[in-house]
């Protein structure tokens, strides 16, 4: 269970006139309780949905207000929170941190009390689950975009988080890989919170949040949420 209480996120931004940096509001104040198994977050580019996702595991900390995961404050118990909340980014390039898939997954397993050989075997097993067994020792940059996203997922899930937050996990993928990743996420036991531009994927969630201009402007069933978002986009165009 993730709870946000009047969480407000600000950041420094350069002054267009060339003066000292200013403080701008990125998101909030937002108050939410997230308990549903499948939650989607939709909204325009720059609306603040990625910031909202990053709040959930303490990658971004609120300037005021609190964010709690199972009663752990992200500001003070960041490490414990991140152990519970896994995070998958849009671009797998930044999150594959080791030269080969095997090393990358093994790195996630470092927290567990395993010998080097056991870790190796567990990593190979995790790769096999995602159809990457053959590619275990190929350089990561030689994998296809879809394979890299699968590897990113494999590495995050190898640490066995309770909640998985995904920030546009399929935006860079073609239709085939998008289906693969969507099906994979749908089949997980964990609570999954997905930021997405894919309205079909959002429609399959239990609950959908619409973010606009740094605020949650709609929160509820998928069908009316998507409707609300479409109306919002149409209003911008008009």
């Amino acid at each position: 269970m993730i709870e946000l209480d009047s969480a407000l996120v600000t950041a420094y931004a350069p002054d267009p006139a060339g003066g000292a940096d200013r403080v701008v509001r990125l998101l909030g104040p937002v108050s939410l309780q997230l308990a549903e198994r499948r939650i989607a977050i939709i909204g325009a580019n720059g609306s603040g949905k990625s910031t909202l996702a990053r709040l959930l595991n303490g990658l971004v900390l609120p300037a005021s207000g609190t964010v709690r995961v199972d009663d752990l404050d992200t500001a003070t118990d960041g490490r414990a929170v991140r152990r519970r909340v896994g995070f998958v980014f849009t671009s797998p390039d930044a999150q594959i941190v080791m030269p080969t898939p095997l090393e990358d997954v093994a790195l996630s397993l470092r927290r567990l009390p395993l010998s080097a050989d056991e870790r190796d075997a567990a990593a190979r097993c995790a790769l096999a689950r995602f159809g990457l067994a053959e590619r275990a020792e190929v350089p990561a940059h030689a994998l296809s975009g879809g394979q890299r996203q699968l590897l990113a997922l494999a590495s995050v899930l190898a640490a066995e988080p309770d909640v998985l937050v995904c920030d546009e996990p399929t935006t860079l993928l073609d239709l085939r890989w998008r289906t693969v990743v969507d099906d994979l996420l749908a089949g997980l036991d964990q609570q999954v919170i997905v930021v997405t531009h894919d309205l079909e994927a959002a429609a399959r969630a239990d609950r959908v949040l619409v973010v606009d201009d740094g605020l949650v402007v709609f929160d509820g069933e998928p069908a009316p949420a998507v409707e609300h978002y479409r109306a919002l986009m149409a209003a911008v165009r008009a």
Binding site: G78, R79, R82, F87, F89, R110
Partner: peptide, 11 residues
């Protein structure tokens, strides 16, 4: 982004 990913993975 890599720093975020490392932190997100608890590394």
């Amino acid at each position: 982004a890599t720093g975020d990913a490392l932190a997100a993975r608890g590394l």
